[in-house]
């Protein structure tokens, strides 16, 4: 999810894949842009980068519970008939990855299954990845990104995760997780927040600022951010080598 420059600039699907991910083009200059890191990789705008607009993935049921006034993209007849992803077979086949058959070397290095989902975070030159399999049983995680404290909420029921800035290096905030009928919540002192949107539900504290993040397959994230620090419950997010 990206901001576009103000004006008439729109983007289309180039039909190309690079590093196992979608390549977009802008209709004004035909420059090619990679989806994962929002970078112009070929054309007049090469070197420019799109600004990430914070977004979150969850099920419709969880989303509409939080935002009953939400707007929804209207569906045409074909979309209305869909009851699953057109790529459902692909998602369920652990052996197929993008256009490659397998990536055994990377798998050996990370110890992750091929279709494992990960919450990817990047800021300045730092990047962290939190694999969903390792987050199980850890609804709230504290970590550092670019030397600033962050908090990550993992909602197993909604099968999604979100990250927020957690105060400053001098005054970090700590949170505990609380499950309620309204979904997972983050609690810090008297302040209670929705863990997936950062909205304050109780207390007087500041709203939580979401970090630009992506839920993607770990290999896609990894191929764009090879210096990603992978998080584990035992070691936190450690530097690579």
């Amino acid at each position: 999810m990206y901001s576009r420059t103000k004006g008439a600039d729109t983007f289309g699907v180039s039909g190309k894949l690079w590093r196992e991910a979608l390549v977009m083009y802008d209709r004004e200059t035909d420059t090619l842009w990679s989806q994962i890191d929002g970078r112009a990789i070929r054309g007049d705008r090469k070197g420019q980068r799109l600004e990430v607009y914070p977004s979150v993935m969850m099920t419709w049921k969880e989303w509409v519970k939080r935002y009953p006034e939400t707007q929804v993209l209207a569906k045409d007849e074909r979309a209305r008939r869909m009851t699953q992803s057109v790529y459902a077979d692909y998602f369920q086949d652990g052996g197929k990855i993008g256009v490659r058959k397998s990536i055994p070397e990377l798998q050996k290095e990370t110890g992750l299954a091929s279709k494992e989902k990960l919450l990817g975070l990047s800021h300045d030159t730092d990047a962290i990845g939190l694999p969903f399999s390792r987050l199980k049983g850890h609804p709230v995680v504290h970590a550092q990104l670019a030397e600033r404290p962050i908090v990550i909420a993992f909602d197993e029921a909604a099968d999604t995760a979100r990250a927020f800035w957690a105060g400053t290096a001098e005054a970090p905030r700590t949170f505990t997780a609380r499950r309620s009928d309204a979904g997972l919540q983050l609690v810090s002192g008297d302040d209670v927040y929705d863990a997936l949107t950062g909205r304050r539900l109780e207390g007087e504290g500041p709203e939580l600022a979401p970090l630009p993040s992506q839920v993607s397959y770990w290999y896609a994230w990894y191929s764009f951010f090879p210096r990603t620090r992978l998080w584990s419950p035992e070691a936190g997010a450690v530097k690579k080598r």
Binding site: S55, M57, M58, W60, W63, T70, V72, K75
Partner: peptide, 21 residues
């Protein structure tokens, strides 16, 4: 159970897009 990408605008307006779509 349909996955959506959700986003909130500067004025607080929520909007979502079905991942299947």
């Amino acid at each position: 159970d349909e996955p959506v990408i959700g986003v909130v605008g500067p004025d607080g307006q929520a909007r979502c897009y079905s991942a299947w779509q």
